[in-house]
Design a protein around this nucleic acid. Structure first.
Lengths: 154, 154
DNA sequence: ATGATTTAGTTTCAAATGTAACTAAATCGA
DNA sequence: TCGATTTAGTTACATTTGAAACTAAATCAT
């Protein structure tokens, strides 16, 4: 029997590992920039990013749009509120929820970070042609569908 | 001026975000399985995975192959050693380092987890044809090259 | 209506992580 | 060859994170 006949797992070739390293490298590089400039964490940025799209949102809606859990959202929101980057308005229909939106200051910072993030994305994506980017997007969507934990298992 | 003209960042379409969610979904799904079965964390598994490839390695070599930092490796190694899944042998050439390898028990667990991980990978990759997988691999490599923080910046 | 359950969001506590400081051995340079 | 620097790995401390428990409001079922 060949002692080199292993389970066939080579970490460097294992897709989940490769995705993880790539994702951490990219997210880390962007986060390093806005953290250095504004002291904002990735999670805080995600909250700002969805609010920056325009709509005011409740915490639960932020959870749905950011793939963060509610505790993480609660904490990010609390920090951003303390720093007056987002504001909380009482909801008229449900006293448990508040409607969150960027403050003027929050919008200013958003307006600085968003182009920073997009620039970096462009920089990395410059390695791909337009067609390749479309292909990549399609394949990632397909994988996301296959990997999504909320698909029925039966 | 159009008040909807934002910085043009939509989180759901932002590649770094999409990669991050996909990566966490996939890694999380696999980790949930081996954590439930053996109480092993992602980082511990990565150390086992590179040792499972065959060669005995020093901590520094593990750092190089896993994209983990040395503190994380040190801690994962310490835990795995306590659980007697890896063993430490004094290095002959450098008294500061030890040479690490899986124990018999470690190899047994490795032999159970590796197929589990590969099965899940296969399951997800089933969403892609062989050609698409090759394309994806190529594109991810390309992105990794472009994103790699160790490339010269000047 | 009103008690039982669900939902929104927060708090608490333990575990995981990152950064910096540290120890000990190896290498470098005069 | 011996002091200065670098390297391997660990430890200590502060911060972040995750899970579970919790509070308060809404909805559901009778």
């Amino acid at each position: 029997m060949d002692s080199d006949t292993k389970a066939g797992l080579t970490l460097a070739a294992f897709l989940p590992y490769r995705l993880s390293v790539l994702s951490n490298t990219i997210s880390g590089a962007i986060a390093a920039r806005y953290d250095a400039a504004f002291g904002i964490s990735i999670r805080q940025w995600r909250v700002m990013a969805v609010l920056g799209e325009g709509e005011a949102l409740t915490a639960t809606e932020i959870v749905a749009r950011t793939a963060m859990d509610k505790v993480a959202v609660s904490r990010a929101v609390a920090d951003l509120e303390t720093r007056e980057l987002i504001a909380r308005a009482a909801s008229t229909r449900d006293a448990r929820q508040s409607v969150l939106s960027l403050t003027g200051q929050g919008r200013e910072i958003y307006a600085e970070i968003a182009p920073m993030a997009l620039d970096y994305e462009r920089e990395v994506l410059a390695a791909l042609s337009q067609t390749e980017l479309e292909t990549l997007t399609r394949l990632l969507d397909r994988l996301a569908g296959a990997a999504s934990p909320d698909r029925p298992l039966w």
